[in-house]
Simulated scan of single mutants.
Amino acid sequence: MGTGTPLTDGGLFLIQFLIGMVIFILMLRFLLRATHADWRHPIVNFTAKVSNPICFPVNKILPAKGRWDIAALITAFIIQTLFVLFIGWMTGKDFGAVFIVIASLTEVANQLLDMMFWLIIIQVILSWVSPQYNPNTAIFIQITEPILAPFRRLIPPIGGMDLSPIFAILAIKLAQIVIVGSIVQFAQPLSGIAG
């Protein structure tokens, strides 16, 4: 989405990168809480410390209860919405309100699904490289196990091979292509931009 000048495009890229990192941390926070990850682990501790100030305003209204950190999702949605508005302002495009909401929701959903995809990939690689229990990498098992468990119930191990990661990855990618992709396609005419 170029604006014409290298300086503006560079600034836009930098802001997009920073926003992406913030959304990444918020999605990680959501997944860590949803999967009951050990909060004593350094990765979990770091994520909490970095994301607490970002989530604080929403947490005041919606305190976290149980395993679902709704504040992290809402904060991610608000930040992504502000970014879409900023992109519109920077590029001189007048996005429709419905498009802004849908674009923000689908971007947050894509980030969450991408994170699940890569966490499963990392866990599979670690299980090959270091099959023995390792407290430093155990966090990946804690995060991915609740994602893989439903697939493992449907497709039990065959000949000692656990195929649940393959089917989980397929399901995640299909959800991105079919469900999220269809919503994005539906939203395109609502952007208020021809073409």
Score class of each variant (00 low, 15 high):
residue 25 I to Y: 13
residue 128 W to T: 02
residue 87 I to R: 11
residue 30 F to T: 01
residue 176 Q to P: 05
residue 61 I to C: 07
residue 37 A to N: 02
residue 58 V to P: 02
residue 89 W to Q: 04
residue 56 F to L: 15
residue 161 M to R: 09
residue 120 I to S: 02
residue 98 V to T: 11
residue 72 A to F: 12
residue 25 I to A: 15
residue 106 T to M: 13
residue 142 Q to H: 04
residue 186 F to M: 14
residue 194 A to S: 12
residue 34 A to N: 06
residue 71 A to Y: 12
residue 119 L to Q: 00
residue 73 L to R: 04
residue 147 I to G: 07
residue 174 L to Q: 05
residue 42 P to V: 06
residue 15 I to M: 14
residue 41 H to F: 08
residue 13 F to S: 12
residue 184 V to M: 12
residue 173 K to C: 00
residue 48 A to F: 13
residue 89 W to C: 03
residue 101 V to A: 10
residue 49 K to H: 14
residue 121 I to C: 01
residue 96 G to T: 04
residue 125 I to D: 01
residue 162 D to G: 08
residue 41 H to V: 05
residue 82 L to F: 15
residue 67 R to G: 13
residue 124 V to Y: 00
residue 139 I to V: 15
residue 38 D to E: 05
residue 126 L to I: 09
residue 30 F to G: 01
residue 158 I to V: 15
residue 59 N to A: 10
residue 103 A to F: 11
residue 11 G to R: 12
residue 50 V to R: 00
residue 66 G to Y: 10
residue 67 R to S: 14
residue 27 M to R: 03
residue 130 S to C: 05
residue 24 F to C: 05
residue 171 A to P: 03
residue 112 L to E: 02
residue 114 D to E: 05
residue 8 T to E: 09
residue 46 F to I: 02
residue 16 Q to G: 10
residue 39 W to R: 13
residue 3 T to H: 07
residue 141 I to M: 05
residue 152 R to D: 05
residue 99 F to I: 06
residue 86 F to S: 08
residue 13 F to R: 06
residue 91 T to V: 06
residue 160 G to N: 10
residue 135 P to C: 03
residue 117 F to S: 03
residue 74 I to C: 08
residue 58 V to D: 03
residue 101 V to Q: 01
residue 135 P to Q: 04
residue 65 K to V: 14
residue 24 F to H: 12
residue 132 Q to I: 12
residue 40 R to A: 07
residue 120 I to H: 01
residue 183 I to L: 15
residue 79 I to H: 10
residue 30 F to P: 03
residue 46 F to H: 05
residue 158 I to R: 11
residue 128 W to I: 07
residue 129 V to C: 06
residue 34 A to L: 15
residue 174 L to I: 14
residue 112 L to F: 12
residue 136 N to R: 13
residue 49 K to G: 09
residue 187 A to M: 04
residue 37 A to R: 07
residue 69 D to S: 01
residue 18 L to D: 01
residue 111 Q to C: 10
residue 6 P to K: 01
residue 90 M to A: 15
residue 124 V to F: 06
residue 177 I to K: 05
residue 69 D to F: 04
residue 99 F to P: 02
residue 68 W to K: 08
residue 18 L to Q: 05
residue 70 I to V: 15
residue 30 F to C: 02
residue 58 V to M: 13
residue 135 P to A: 08
residue 14 L to V: 14
residue 130 S to F: 08
residue 125 I to W: 00
residue 109 A to T: 11
residue 117 F to H: 10
residue 133 Y to E: 04
residue 96 G to P: 08
residue 92 G to T: 09
residue 13 F to D: 10
residue 130 S to Y: 07
residue 134 N to W: 01
residue 113 L to H: 06
residue 126 L to C: 03
residue 94 D to C: 06
residue 40 R to S: 11
residue 35 T to F: 03
residue 27 M to G: 06
residue 122 I to P: 00
residue 29 R to V: 03
residue 174 L to W: 08
residue 22 V to Q: 06
residue 76 A to G: 13
residue 96 G to V: 04
residue 140 F to V: 02
residue 166 I to N: 00
